[in-house]
Simulated scan of single mutants.
Amino acid sequence: MPKETGRKIIAQNKKARHDYHVEDTYEAGLVLTGTEVKSLRAGRASLVDGFCDIDGGEAWLHNVHIPEYAQGTWTNHLTRRKRKLLLNRHEIDKIEQRVQAKGLTLVPLSLYFRDGRAKVEIALARGKKQYDKRHAIAERQAKADAQRELGRRLKGIR
């Protein structure tokens, strides 16, 4: 059987990019049980309420919903258990220092398979204010309007 290659996205947290200014991103491995991996391979997960924290020198992922595997038996996992993140020691120390000093938070951005291994992209982020969110929406709308108008002009439509 050939080895898996490439990147297969399972879940993305689009709301995180709306609610936070992303300052830095990291890729971390996950410690999972067998039924969790099978459920992820079926493409089922949700990062909406997820967050990360550093506890006792280890990084943990909380509130990520991986539903029970349908063909699982008594070995099935809890859907919202806390899962350990696999990061290098210097990465964990750097993240912990920035979270404590600058008041940043750790949020998961996406969950995917890279070369057959489950990975999560986490971000050091700062919360946006309400006016920042409105400004981002207005900016995105202005960019879309400009693209639309450019397309019309290229087609010769007024």
Rank of each mutant, 00 (worst) to 15 (best):
T35H: 12
G29D: 05
T105G: 12
K3A: 11
Q100L: 13
D115N: 13
L86C: 07
R117T: 10
A42T: 09
A125Q: 00
L87C: 09
H62T: 09
A28C: 09
K8D: 10
Y112K: 03
V107C: 07
I54W: 03
V120Y: 00
E121S: 03
K102N: 15
T33V: 15
K128D: 06
L124R: 01
K14G: 10
L109D: 00
L124Y: 02
N13A: 00
Y20L: 05
A16M: 03
D93H: 08
R83M: 14
M1H: 06
K84F: 11
L106F: 03
L32H: 03
R153A: 12
L30I: 03
L154V: 11
E149P: 03
L104W: 10
L47N: 08
L85Q: 02
R17M: 11
G34A: 05
L124E: 10
F51S: 09
E23I: 10
R117V: 09
S110W: 00
V120H: 02
L109A: 01
R126E: 12
G72Q: 06
V99A: 04
K143W: 06
H62N: 14
D19W: 05
G56Q: 05
G43S: 06
I122L: 00
T73F: 12
Y26D: 01
Q141V: 09
R148M: 12
L30C: 08
T79P: 10
R117E: 08
V99F: 04
W74D: 13
D55F: 13
R140E: 13
L86N: 11
T25C: 05
R81H: 13
D53C: 14
A136N: 12
A42P: 07
L61K: 02
I122N: 00
D93T: 09
N88T: 12
I122Y: 00
F113M: 00
L106P: 01
Y131C: 06
G156S: 04
V64N: 02
Q141E: 12
I66G: 02
A45Q: 04
D115L: 04
D132R: 04
D132I: 05
L87Q: 02
D19G: 06
T25D: 01
E96D: 15
V64P: 01
P108G: 04
E121P: 02
G103W: 05
L104G: 04
